[in-house]
Amino acid sequence: MYNGNKLSPVLKGVLVAGFLFLYLPIVSLIVYSFNASKLVTVWGGFSTRWYVSLFHNEQILSAVGLSIRIALASATAAVVLGTVAGFVLARFKRFRGSTLFAGMMTAPMVMPEVITGLSMLLLFISMQQLFGQPSERGFFTIWVGHTTLCMAYVAVVVRSRLIEIDKTLEDAAMDLGARPLKIFFVITLPLISQAIASGFLLSITLSLDDLVTTAFLSGPGSTTLPQVIFSKVRLGLNPEINALATITVLIVGIMVVAANYLMLNAQRNREKAIAAAMRENENAQAGPPSSAVSSASA
């Protein structure tokens, strides 16, 4: 799409307006987290008191702890299941029930959460009636819910990466004597590792952020962070939530920027190496081969 020209003023204006729209609320959230006044929207001078009180709020802290544990557990399970599912979608074109499988893979991404949450809850209730397990709602049921939701996202990311990579690499490994399982671990997995990593991060954020499904699947004593936030926010503005939001934005911001930077850097190095190899090749054809001194060797 890029044609080498500078962006027209109109499009520049569109971008500026668009990003203002996306970011002004977040900026206001951050600014007012440093507000001394208890009235969130009335500026009463700079203060960090809400951060201090946030870190003394036992309810929030324990909810953060639970949310992080659930997020790590679900992201791990989602990455395993989602990678396998993505592999199945990308490599096994047709098998009995493949249509249903693909459907079950995409639907959780768009299905309204009130529906997924309710249906999973009713499943667990039925299971309890039939088998006596799970005996109560809590960590396990939330974990199952989040895993199911997140694995669909992981599968999509992994699948599109798998479709990108050259399938003959796997053929070549098989030709050289590696068996399918070994090929998956030695060839395929390293090549999709970046997709898996981003699937993992995506799962973490989805799980940390999920309110509706969690509300259906949690029981007494298992209150996650979004549930605490929701119950507080429902009652009105709360400066502690502003502080919490600021910290979230900061952490996510740093992570996203760092990940982007690392990826760009890796890509840039790669491009440099390719350019060097091309140059060297020309030199080698023109001059004596000894001139091809390695300058880009890793």
């Binding site: 050259d166 003959t168 690499l169 053929d171 070549a172 490994a173 030709d175 050289l176 590696a178």
Partner: peptide, 29 residues
């Protein structure tokens, strides 16, 4: 099966494993 055959193939696009060095590629089989 391909991995049991005493046959090897040089692929059209070479199919060199991008995450392995020249040496590791040759040693793979």
């Amino acid at each position: 099966a391909p991995y049991d055959r005493p046959i090897n193939m040089m692929f059209q696009s070479y199919a060199l494993f991008p995450h392995m060095s020249v040496e590791q590629n040759i040693a793979f089989g």
